[in-house]
Amino acid sequence: MTDKREITLTVNGTERTVEAEPRKLLVHAIREDLDLTGTHIGCDTGNCGACTVLKDGEPIKSCLTFAVQADGSEIMTVEGMEDLPEASGELHPLQEGFREEHGLQCGYCTPGMIMSGKALLDENPDPEEGEIREAISGNLCRCTGYQNIVKSIEYAADELNKEPAAADGGTVTAEQRFADDDFDCGVENCCGGPSTETPHVEGADPQFDDVGGDDT
């Protein structure tokens, strides 16, 4: 098994080269060859999502992907979040959201959750609760019960929708940001998706319409 191949990945904006056997999983290349240990392994079967990274902007499970399959692609891991422009040199609003809303406990699923959250907000900047739950349903968390993770992503959406400042000094809303292009996330009543009489979001569970959780 010494048939190693050289592959090139652009990881968090930096080009990196890895010598990998064809059978090496992307998650092992990221963690062990590139020493980016923020991406975790929790199940080996693609269920838990602790290994979620973005490959060319799409969330993937890096434990189900061979490193060679990612040759030539752009990979983003949790370690790249602070370098994004929205982070302004500090924490990205998603990271901030997880801290402010207590969206993590043991922290093991957190990087994967953050990456799934990023993929969602990149596509759908103002998601409904049901859409958030759908988007993170491939990421298991055993600690939080998800409620605060949902809030963390909502926090980030709110923060991101305040930026960037519009030319008049005000803020640009998600609707404005997407008003000029043909972006369509495919969801009814969202981003140009088909409209129905009764607002209904595909994938959204009606039980989440009424958000409780007030500590009365």
Partner: peptide, 12 residues
């Protein structure tokens, strides 16, 4: 403890 976990700097 959160900052190390949300930035991928946890040490498991």
């Amino acid at each position: 403890e959160d900052k190390r976990f949300i930035t991928g700097r946890g040490n498991y």
